[in-house]
């Protein structure tokens, strides 16, 4: 059984009348990359602040590495690396000096700190930027420096709040690769908050979808689809050759549904713009085409669409379930 490293138990955070986080229950296990996906203002950052003990929950309990973050924030902060959204550095200091400062704050002595900082700078690919002032760093470089800054305390967990916002696609890719590498090397648990679906999909083992202070779905991509779609996670679009149809038949959805009866997993058939749309739980496109051919019908169009997180995400952000 996986060992939980971050546990949020029935967390609520209110600002006056406004409920930012509403009875949130969330568990992140050791060694996994968990994606917290949600639109801006969903309460992601607030939850993260509570995990670090930087703000107190109105009710509920937060445990990180088995320690209560609200009452023992210092112990938690020695184990957790936090990269805030749009991280800042002292612009008139060099990248190395900034890292050394963080290491010193974490109780290292100066020689240790310098050595560690140098190693990490090259680890995140900033070896040749060490003596450059951070004021001159590009956004992508700052985020990578931020990652080094988080790693310098040798954390068990790292929490990244929107680490990819404002970086170009290449920079994003580098950063994501780095995160996965780090996880694989050191078995660090990662909590990754983002509103960008594709990035989350790419690196996260599990995802939680967070809307208006509530976690509405949680799990890996597949189980999410199953949780959220009572019908159909694949959509097959099918076109039939009119000439091949037997005479005196009305090629409507019901008719096709009957034909496809033996194919397991077909849930719903509709007809639109001359094409049939078949919703099904699994990828049954080959079975469907086989069945069509067997009946002597001509198949002139077949297209399979997979409902990714995209569809799930859009669906939630549009507000409908």
């Amino acid at each position: 059984m996986a060992e939980p490293i971050i546990q949020l138990v029935d967390i609520t955070k209110k600002y006056g009348d406004f409920t930012a986080v509403d009875h949130l229950n969330l568990t992140v296990n050791r060694g996994e990359i968990f994606g917290l996906l949600g639109p801006n203002g969903a309460g992601k950052s607030t939850s993260i602040l509570m995990m670090l003990g930087l703000t107190e929950p109105t009710s509920g309990e937060v445990r990180v590495c088995g320690i209560n973050s609200t009452t023992h924030p210092i112990e938690v902060k020695t184990r957790v690396g936090y990269l805030p959204e749009d991280v800042g550095f002292y612009d008139d200091r060099t990248g190395l000096e900034n890292l050394v400062y963080t290491a010193l704050l974490n109780g290292a002595n100066r020689s240790e700190a310098t050595q560690l900082a140098t190693e990490l700078m090259s680890r995140v690919g900033l070896a040749d930027q060490m003596s450059k002032k951070t004021g001159k760093y590009s956004k992508g470089m700052r985020q990578r420096l931020g990652l080094a800054d988080v790693l310098i305390k040798n954390p068990e967990v790292i929490i990244l709040d929107e680490p990819t916002s404002g970086i170009d696609p290449k920079g994003v890719q580098k950063l994501l690769d780095l995160i996965v590498e780090l996880r694989n090397e050191h078995q660090i648990s990662v909590l990754f908050s983002s509103h960008n679906l594709h990035q989350v999909q790419q690196v996260c083992d599990r995802v939680g979808i967070f809307v208006e202070g509530k976690l509405i779905a949680e799990g890996n991509i597949q189980s999410l689809s199953q949780q959220l779609f009572t019908h159909g996670m694949y959509l097959i679009e099918l076109g039939l050759d009119e000439k091949s149809l037997p005479k005196n038949t009305n090629p409507d959805a019901l008719w096709l549904k009957q034909i496809l009866e033996p194919v397991e997993g077909v849930q719903k058939v509709t007809r639109a713009n001359g094409l049939f749309q078949i919703e099904c739980a699994g990828d049954v496109s080959s079975a469907v085409s086989k069945r069509i051919i067997e009946r002597g019908l001509g198949l002139n169009f077949l297209n399979r669409k997979e409902y990714g997180l995209d569809a799930i995400y859009n669906r939630y952000f549009e507000g409908g379930v």
């Binding site: 670090l52 112990e75 936090y82 805030p84 800042g88 550095f89 704050l105 305390k153």
Partner: peptide, 14 residues
């Protein structure tokens, strides 16, 4: 405003 405060406060200091 420089975003350094939240980074520093995430370190194990009071």
């Amino acid at each position: 405003n420089n975003g350094t405060l939240s980074r520093i406060l995430a370190q194990p200091i009071y």
